[in-house]
Amino acid sequence: MIVEPRSIAIIASREDVSTLAACIRSAIQACKDRRAVVDVLVNGNPELAHNIAGLCVDVPPTCVLRVWRIQQGDKAHAWNEYVHRIWASDGDAIFLDGYVEVEPDSFDALDRGLATAPEAQGATGVPTCGRSALHLRALMLSEGGFHGNLNLIRAGVMAKLRASGFRLPLGLYRTDSVTGAVLMLGLDPAANHWDRRRIAVVPDAIWNVRSMERITFKNILGQWKRMLRQAQGVLENRAVREHLIVRGLAPHLLPSTAHGLVNGWITAQPAQARRLFIKQPLCAWVAWRLRVPRDWSAADIAPVVVPAPVKRHSIV
C-alpha cells in the first residue's frame, strides 16, 4: 500500500513567533515521521515570515518545511494562493490556523474519518477549548459543519477546485463557511443538493489554543474587531446562500471580493437587507463600511519562499 505524503498548509498573519512556532512544531509531530510538506503561509507580515524562517532549520528528514511570504494580508487570498500556486498535487490538503496546536493523533483521526465516509469530499476537526466549544462541537456532530482551525480537503477535490478556477472572495471573513458550503454542494449547486455527509466531522481531530492574556486595551480592541468581522460574516452567509443555494450558481462565479459579494446581495435583496439591518444594526454599519472598495493590488504579487538565515534555533 502506497501512503501518500501529507500536505499541510498553515495560514498565519498576526501571530507572534512563539505561537506560530508551536503550531508548526505540533503539525510536524502529528505527521509521525510520515512524508510531509508543511507550507507556512504568512500573509501581510514580512517580519513574521522572516523571523519564523530563522527557526525552521532542523526538521525530520521526512519533512519539507517552507515559509512563504505573501504580500497581501488576507486569509482568503492566502488560501487561494495555496490552492492555485503552492499545493503540489500531492496528497490530501490539511489546513491549520497559525495560532492552534494540533494534538498528535489529529491528522490520523482525519484519515480514519475519511476512510469511513467514502462520499465525503473533506473532513473537519471539532473544537474542545473556548467558551462556545462544547456547544459548537455538539452542533457540528449533530448537524455537520466545517471548522477553519483544522480541516482537510481530499486531493481529488483540490484538483477540481484548481481546475474550475474557484477562489474565495478577497476580504472574506467566513472562509470556512464558504468552503464548507461548496463541499457540501459537491462543487456544483446546479446538480447537487446540500448533503452534510460530504464533510466528515471527526470528534477525535482536536487542537488547543493558548489562553488569552490579561485584559488590556489591545485585547478589548481585538474583541471589538472580532464583533465587526462576525457581523460581516452574517452578511457574507446571506450573500453566499443567495448565490449557491437560491440561484444555484457555480462557486467559481462568486464575486472576487467580499465587497462585491455583500453589496451584490444588498442590491438584489433590499427588503431582506433592511430586515436584517433593523434586527442587527451592527450589520448595517459593516455594510456601510463595505461600500468603499479596498485596494487589492498586492494580491497580484506571487508568493515567495523565505530562505532560512544562518542557523540559530530549532523548531522541533
Rank of each mutant, 00 (worst) to 15 (best):
79 W>D: 13
254 L>M: 06
205 A>R: 05
216 T>S: 09
307 P>W: 07
97 D>K: 02
298 A>V: 07
22 A>D: 08
265 W>Q: 05
23 C>F: 06
264 G>K: 02
81 E>K: 15
280 Q>K: 14
260 G>L: 03
221 L>A: 12
214 R>F: 00
263 N>S: 02
21 A>G: 05
236 E>H: 05
219 N>D: 12
103 E>H: 12
179 T>D: 04
205 A>G: 02
183 L>T: 04
53 A>Q: 04
59 V>T: 10
184 M>F: 02
123 A>F: 06
111 D>I: 11
71 Q>N: 14
196 R>S: 14
93 A>N: 09
275 R>V: 11
102 V>G: 07
68 W>M: 00
78 A>N: 10
34 R>M: 07
146 F>G: 00
47 E>H: 14
14 R>Y: 12
116 T>I: 12
1 M>T: 15
29 Q>Y: 10
191 A>L: 11
274 R>V: 14
194 W>P: 07
221 L>C: 12
110 L>M: 07
152 L>E: 09
195 D>N: 11
162 R>D: 02
269 Q>C: 14
117 A>F: 01
23 C>N: 10
149 N>Y: 10
287 A>F: 04
178 V>S: 05
83 V>A: 03
93 A>F: 06
47 E>I: 14
258 A>I: 09
209 V>F: 00
80 N>V: 10
270 P>W: 09
54 G>C: 05
107 F>Y: 14
24 I>T: 04
195 D>R: 01
316 V>F: 11
236 E>V: 05
170 L>P: 02
164 S>E: 03
73 G>N: 00
10 I>E: 04
252 H>N: 12
56 C>S: 12
167 R>Y: 03
138 A>L: 12
314 S>K: 09
302 A>T: 04
307 P>G: 09
203 P>H: 03
247 R>H: 11
56 C>L: 10
140 M>E: 04
228 L>P: 03
54 G>F: 03
141 L>Q: 06
261 L>P: 09
68 W>Y: 06
79 W>I: 15
265 W>Y: 09
144 G>H: 05
104 P>T: 03
121 Q>K: 12
198 R>W: 01
158 M>V: 02
164 S>N: 03
255 P>K: 01
228 L>I: 09
28 I>N: 03
235 L>D: 08
4 E>H: 15
120 A>D: 05
183 L>I: 00
27 A>V: 08
52 I>P: 02
191 A>D: 09
70 I>L: 12
286 V>M: 08
85 R>S: 14
114 L>M: 15
183 L>D: 00
263 N>I: 05
165 G>N: 04
196 R>Q: 13
176 D>V: 10
213 E>D: 08
297 S>D: 06
271 A>E: 10
256 S>N: 11
43 N>P: 08
75 K>D: 14
1 M>N: 11
146 F>E: 04
169 P>L: 07
14 R>C: 11
100 V>S: 11
287 A>V: 05
129 C>E: 11
3 V>M: 13
